[in-house]
């Protein structure tokens, strides 16, 4: 509980910073901080496997790639982005507040009904569940990610020059 109380405000601050920072690279680094703090929260709450995977996948690969991609964007976009910001606050809040309310409502309603015995799940059991009961879902996600990667490669490819 202490960990939750300490880490969740930090996570929120980092996330707000990620949205609010003017320079995209700062925002990207703060996103990495948000993700790693969330990983620490998982570890503190007893989900070590999830926390470490969060570090490996989200901090090590996703956040680094995001920051990397941001580097290549032109600084002009940055200035436009800063000029556009005050106007985007209202619509942004309008969109996110209902979502937040729905989330809070659902989480509040479903949380106490979590099945007993899921608190202390050994890694072996997680692996068995993923590759037996939930194997179709894992495969579907794998195919989806491959498709996304192919799509990204298609977009990133230089358009062939016409003679």
């Amino acid at each position: 509980m202490t960990a939750l109380l300490i880490l969740s405000p930090l996570i929120m601050l980092a996330a707000l910073g990620a949205v609010w920072k003017a320079r995209p690279v700062h925002a990207g680094l703060l996103l990495a901080l948000t993700l790693s703090l969330a990983g620490m929260l998982y570890i503190a709450l007893g989900a070590e496997f999830l926390g470490l995977v969060q570090f490996m996948v989200y901090v090590g690969a996703v956040a680094v790639l995001i920051v990397f991609a941001l580097l290549i964007t032109r600084p002009r976009d940055e200035i436009e982005e800063i000029a556009r910001r005050p106007k985007s606050v209202g619509p942004g809040l309008l969109c996110t507040l209902p979502l937040l309310a729905t989330l809070l409502y659902t989480v509040d309603r479903t949380l106490p009904e979590a099945p007993p015995g899921t608190a202390d799940l050994p890694v072996r059991r997680i692996g068995e569940l993923l590759f037996t009961t939930h194997a179709p879902a894992v495969l579907a996600v794998a195919i989806l990610l491959t498709a996304v990667m192919l799509g990204a490669a298609l977009f990133a490819r230089e358009p062939s020059k016409k003679p």
Binding site: S36, F49, L52, V53, F55, M56, G60, A63, V64
Partner: peptide, 15 residues
């Protein structure tokens, strides 16, 4: 989860 911990730390080095 020592092995996983080790690789998770590798991610920090990249950042």
């Amino acid at each position: 989860l020592g092995l996983l911990f080790f690789f998770a730390l590798g991610a920090l080095t990249e950042v």
